[in-house]
Nucleic acid binder design. Sequence first.
DNA 1: AATTAGCACTCATTGCTGCCGAGTGCTAAC
DNA 2: GTTAGCACTCGGCAGCAATGAGTGCTAATT
Lengths: 355, 355
Amino acid sequence: MDERKKQILKAVVEDYVISAEPVGSKSLIERHNLGVSSATIRHEMADLEAEGYLEKPYTSAGRIPSDKGYRSYVDELLEVGELPRTQAIAMRTMFKDSLVELTDLIRQATAVLSAQNDYVSLALTPKYANSRLRQVKLLMIEPGKVLVVVVLAAGLVKDRLVRISDQISGEQLDRLGKAIEEGLAGKKLSDITLVTVAGTVSGQPLADGLLNQVIYEAYVSIKQAEHLDLYVEGTHRLLAQPEYRDVDKAHRFMRALGEEKTIAGYIADLPAADDLACGRYLVRIGQEITLDGFEDTSFITSTYCVNGEVYGQIGVIGPRRMDYGRIISQIRFINRQLHEATSDAPHISKDNHEA
Amino acid sequence: MDERKKQILKAVVEDYVISAEPVGSKSLIERHNLGVSSATIRHEMADLEAEGYLEKPYTSAGRIPSDKGYRSYVDELLEVGELPRTQAIAMRTMFKDSLVELTDLIRQATAVLSAQNDYVSLALTPKYANSRLRQVKLLMIEPGKVLVVVVLAAGLVKDRLVRISDQISGEQLDRLGKAIEEGLAGKKLSDITLVTVAGTVSGQPLADGLLNQVIYEAYVSIKQAEHLDLYVEGTHRLLAQPEYRDVDKAHRFMRALGEEKTIAGYIADLPAADDLACGRYLVRIGQEITLDGFEDTSFITSTYCVNGEVYGQIGVIGPRRMDYGRIISQIRFINRQLHEATSDAPHISKDNHEA
DNA sequence: AATTAGCACTCATTGCTGCCGAGTGCTAAC
DNA sequence: GTTAGCACTCGGCAGCAATGAGTGCTAATT
């Protein structure tokens, strides 16, 4: 693809992102000074279409970028700039880094991101499967009710309230908690099984039935610490996008967005999730997304890191016709904010099992 | 209003609920055998309009019920029946009463309710201002990070992770927690102030600065136990309603639905919230709702009670043209499910401060 | 006095028409 | 290789008539 074709593709994408209307040869030369006439542009655009970078909605309309066109734009033509000052200030203002809890901070980052651009934004809490267990506490709340607190080395605290026979006393629970903690502290979450939990309390003087209850609940609580939470913000903003003037289309998409488990699973498995380089971003366009209902949207996700060691994904979902450059710099910015907020005054990673 | 007028009003409301189209005299006698001609109906409808029960969108259209018409329908004409068997079975199937935590149970009830009818459903966690404090625990997670656990007599457990100077040891924290608990247990949440908290630890041998940190965090944690959580489910379903074929209207409404704090406040202050009779329901129609953006919707809310003592609100929001009878029996049903699920095997009321 | 049949009238909706304009591809000239 | 010119395409919009479901009113009927 020669230089001029690139310029034209870039111009088409950028105009289409703004107008949401197919862009024609004449309007192209009006907005960009390409130094050639519209007829030349027409030739070039016909070529670009033949090569699959552009599409025509109908015979005599202008062109819109195809998935391949967007891909090429994102990979080769887009130079991501710094965030404009006014936007940076706006975002910083919304971003209160006084929040103590990591969950709140991430959630807020998601909200800020979504508020800045009429797209949906979302964040996924870190994967903790490789994290190590640090503490387990069993706290008697009242006879029969026990709060299980699990603390990971990464700083995450999750807790869970369970019912356990009231024949177990507070002291016994305390002792059992200590035994489990002692036996499992330092182990990777993924290495902990029902059997290893059972092993830690085998010597305890307690009826098997009661012991099993405790083992089971402790195990489930530990396992739940791995659980991924997805925060989705700004779904309603999509309705401001021209592509969703069609209510049925909007409805289908919103329903798909409601499948949080599916989305969380998909995002967690994206290649970027394993690549631990902080701030790396990944763009998925249209058909590249193998997720029902997302065929004509785009994802931009990025790995964030907090406290210098745990990683999650934060990103934006919108129509394919998205302002990629703008979003990417916003995501970078919020990522940096997240990093700063957690590094100068280490934030606390607390979470819980609510989905 | 004579008997025939009532019948006609009822018929108009019911037809309109089904069709979402203004209903005319002729189509009325087709669907209901009222024993009179369309001309008579026309006379009666003109009267009903003059009295404010019906409205005409434009001169030569059929009639639609006004707020007053709906009100009259709900208060006088509607007989709420039992839920049809198939629906009851469907709902029971979706409702897993194996859930241990109250929060999950309520959230699930909301989801089930919404899934049964294309409206938005929502639930508000109980008000705890009158509840009494039972336990306060300060748990050292790591130096500088403390988990504050607050337990109310009603069974609610809330916890919160805070940063507190690492100069305080685990034992000191434990002792402070015990002192606070001892001093405040049995007190109503609304009676606890920063001063009363401070009073409980006044004798402790600790630097003022450190002590103040603990007092402040404990106080905030206790206060946060009062915090109301709102669960909203099924916003996207609204897009299936003909009234929201208009994307802008849908957008405005969804934006309004995003103001969870405002909605929570409004619902918590509804008269039914104070009237502690379980299962009582309240219908708010159109302009009766003094909440921005909800002028042409209706609320049906109901007080639920769990464990026989704590109360919250569960309800449905939809277009005014709502199947009131159906929704009310659904809400009753889910309310009963909620009650049963928590009474035969007392459920645990755990909650936390995430908004 | 209440009911009803009949009728003229209203008005949103639908389908049709023709026009406009922004777009195209092609050809021939530069 | 570029461009001017031109015929052609096609969605969008304005205008218009026909349709039909509705109304209110009047006069006849019970």
